[in-house]
Structures are given as structure tokens and as C-alpha cells.
Design a protein around this nucleic acid. Structure first.
Length: 106
DNA sequence: CTGATGACAGTAC
DNA sequence: AGTACTGCCATCA
């Protein structure tokens, strides 16, 4: 039951991330109610698929880098984020600058 | 049930 | 700053 709520919260938060901003697995997990459920968030996104209709590409790890198991998808994600205005630096972006929710949202 | 794995995170060196 | 180890939680063999 809580599990369903958790994934629902994750979907909601994911859909709430505005273009040009990114969030981390741990951040979403924390907002969803699981401070240490980062892995569950990643598992959830992995089960969704590339065309689930949600901005899964706006979710990065705590280092602001792409953690996709398949390099091909990683390239796609980076391209999508760059199309939204995210500037990548050596495979990483300024998480502090694009982090959501930022200090102004909190 | 036990052990291993994973789109992670935090701390230690 | 970059690498290594450990911790958490859920799923799979």
C-alpha cells in the first residue's frame, strides 16, 4: 500500500519538474516519503520505459550525472536535457544550478 | 529463506 | 577532486 503511494508520489513529483531543471533520485525519494529510497526511484523509472510520457530524463544522481546502465540512453538523456537548456560538463551538469526543488521552491 | 543485484547516497581515505 | 567502502530498500535466482 505504501509502496503504491510511494510510486504515485514519484510520478507526481517527476511530472512536476519544470523544463530546464533537474532532480536527483534521492531528492525525489525523500519528497516521496523515503529518505533512503533512491534505488527504488531508479527501479521505478527503469520499469517505466523511454516513452512512458514522463520527463524521466530530468532525474539524475546526486552527482548531477547520468546513471543509465545503457550508454545509448545516457546520450539520449543528455541530448534531451541540453535541448531544455541544461549545460553538460564532461558528462555532468551543475546540479546546484538546475536542482529542483531549488532554494526558492523551499 | 539466503544471497546477489541495481537508473543511488553518504562518508572515509 | 577522485576512488573505495558501506548503508538502504526492493526485486530476482
Amino acid at each position: 500500500m505504501s509502496k503504491a503511494m510511494f510510486e504515485k508520489q514519484v510520478y507526481l513529483l517527476l511530472a512536476a519538474i519544470p523544463a530546464g531543471q533537474v532532480s536527483s533520485y534521492g531528492q525525489l525519494a525523500r519528497l516521496a516519503g523515503k529518505p533512503n529510497g533512491a534505488r527504488e526511484v531508479g527501479r521505478l523509472l527503469a520499469g517505466l520505459g523511454p516513452d512512458c510520457g514522463l520527463p524521466w530524463q530530468r532525474v539524475l544522481n546526486a552527482q548531477g550525472a547520468i546513471s543509465l546502465p545503457r550508454p545509448g540512453s545516457g546520450e539520449l538523456q543528455q541530448a534531451l536535457l541540453e535541448a531544455e537548456g541544461i549545460v553538460f560538463k564532461n558528462g555532468r551538469c551543475n546540479l546546484k544550478k538546475y536542482a529542483w526543488p531549488g532554494p526558492e521552491q523551499v
